[in-house]
Simulated scan of single mutants.
Amino acid sequence: MVDRYLARLIAVPLAATLVIAAMLLLLDKMLRLFDFVAQEGGPVSVVWRMLASLIPEYLSLGIPIGLMLGILLAFRRLATTSELDVMQAVGMSYGRLLRVPFYYAGALAFVNLAIVGFVQPYARYAYEGLRYELRSGALGASIKVGEFTKLGKKMTLRVERSQDGGRELSGLFVMAQGDDGKSLAVTAEHGRFMATDDPDTIILRLRNGSLVHNAPGFAAPRVLTFVNHDLPIDLPREEKFRLRGGRDGEMTIPELVRSGHKNGNPLLERARSRAEYHFRMVEVATMLLLPLLAVALAVPPKRSSSALGVFLSIVMIVTYHKVNEYAEALGSLGKIDPLIALWVPFAIFAGLIWWMYHTLAHKPGGQPIGALERSADKAWKWVRSRFSSDRKGKPA
């Protein structure tokens, strides 16, 4: 009964925090992606494909925070409603109550390992591929309205208006130059791009316009009007996107292990692969420490409802993540062995968490952040007293 009750208390804030964190990260990125795609003249649909490729990366960041806050808020509720005191009075220790949180931590650590080890590398490669295709025009980026656009080396197009997602064009001007000195200038009311059997060629079908055809042998340029006219356009050849693994973030964990211990690779490349491998493993291993940290920060002092522990938990997790990123950068440069750069801070962080949990669980009246709680309470009372005195001093 107690395990099911704890599981329900943890599940709701865990899921809510995970969804909110992922949505906030995606919304922040979405604004920048819309700006990037608009500048490149690409279709809006590519934004959603790029965001979908970023979901695994944001989940790997949101899962530890969700796990931390889910356990912390659940035990904080137990502590503020005195249910935690009742459970301890009937013989349930903190170790017994941590059984369910560790079930959550183990399951989510396995999920996170699968994400950062195997899913995220492929998703990141897909994201970089979309960026490359968008910059190179391989996605069929729309023509920029009101600007002269180069189609190949010897053709220029200008469009006044665009409808139907860029498929229907109006107010067209086309200027084309041939290798033999021939030139063609075309104006048309409407136009549409059409696919052909040749993947390297498309047709610009023009309607209701005029064309001026000139060549070295002509005494005067020929002027013609037309109802329909097809203008073939040779697509430029696009270089294929690089193979996956050009960056360490695009390699799976087994690939990082092989790259980091392959004698034929340069020392710097091996250092980068080892640093990336240890960074991912440390991030996953840290999740197994979060239940202890959450409980240590969840229980406020007696007769106190301070939420300092919630704020401190987020600060500690974010700070430790930044320390790991800095350690990974040092290890990838070969300045320090990645094993030392990443696992020594992990050992220090684990020692701090164990001391905080031991103080709460095994010392009578122990409060690991008691001094900070008292300081924060005094500061809050001082602010309230100053605010109330200022209000009383004002004339009615």
Results as ranks from 00 to 15, higher is better:
S385R: 09
N228E: 13
E83K: 02
G309F: 03
L289R: 03
R161H: 11
R207A: 12
L297Q: 00
R244F: 05
A89V: 04
E255R: 13
K381A: 12
A285P: 00
G137E: 03
I348N: 04
L97G: 01
Y132P: 07
V119M: 04
S170M: 14
T252P: 03
V257G: 07
K302N: 09
A109R: 03
R161G: 07
V227C: 05
S375R: 11
R207F: 15
M316V: 12
K182D: 14
A109H: 00
A21I: 13
V90A: 05
D85Q: 13
E133H: 07
A341C: 11
V223Y: 13
I340Y: 14
G66P: 03
R242E: 12
G166V: 00
R32M: 13
F193G: 06
V318S: 06
G351I: 05
G140E: 06
W48D: 12
S60V: 04
V100E: 00
M316W: 14
V310G: 02
L14P: 05
K381F: 14
T201A: 09
A341M: 05
D200W: 06
V145M: 07
A347D: 01
P254C: 04
L308H: 03
E269D: 08
R161C: 04
I65E: 01
E328V: 08
F110C: 10
M356T: 03
V119A: 14
I65Y: 01
A298M: 10
L206Y: 02
I336R: 11
L130K: 01
R258A: 09
L113D: 03
A89C: 04
L51Y: 04
D28R: 13
F102M: 14
I10C: 00
M316Q: 07
L72F: 10
A185L: 09
L67A: 04
E147L: 07
Q367V: 08
E160Q: 08
D197C: 04
Y122F: 12
S304L: 08
G181S: 02
S388R: 10
V100G: 00
T187K: 13
Y127R: 06
K378L: 15
P338I: 06
T156R: 09
L73N: 05
R131H: 13
V212N: 10
K363T: 15
H358M: 09
A138I: 07
D179R: 15
W382V: 10
M50Q: 07
E239A: 11
R158H: 15
R135C: 02
M30Q: 12
A138C: 01
L308N: 08
M356G: 12
K262M: 08
E250M: 00
G137N: 01
I115C: 08
T81K: 11
L268S: 12
Y357Q: 00
L267F: 06
V90Q: 12
R131L: 06
A114P: 04
S306D: 04
Y5K: 02
L24F: 06
V186H: 04
R49T: 15
L204W: 09
P13V: 09
A327R: 02
P300L: 00
R96S: 12
D198Y: 06
I55M: 15
I65L: 11
L51G: 02
G152Q: 06
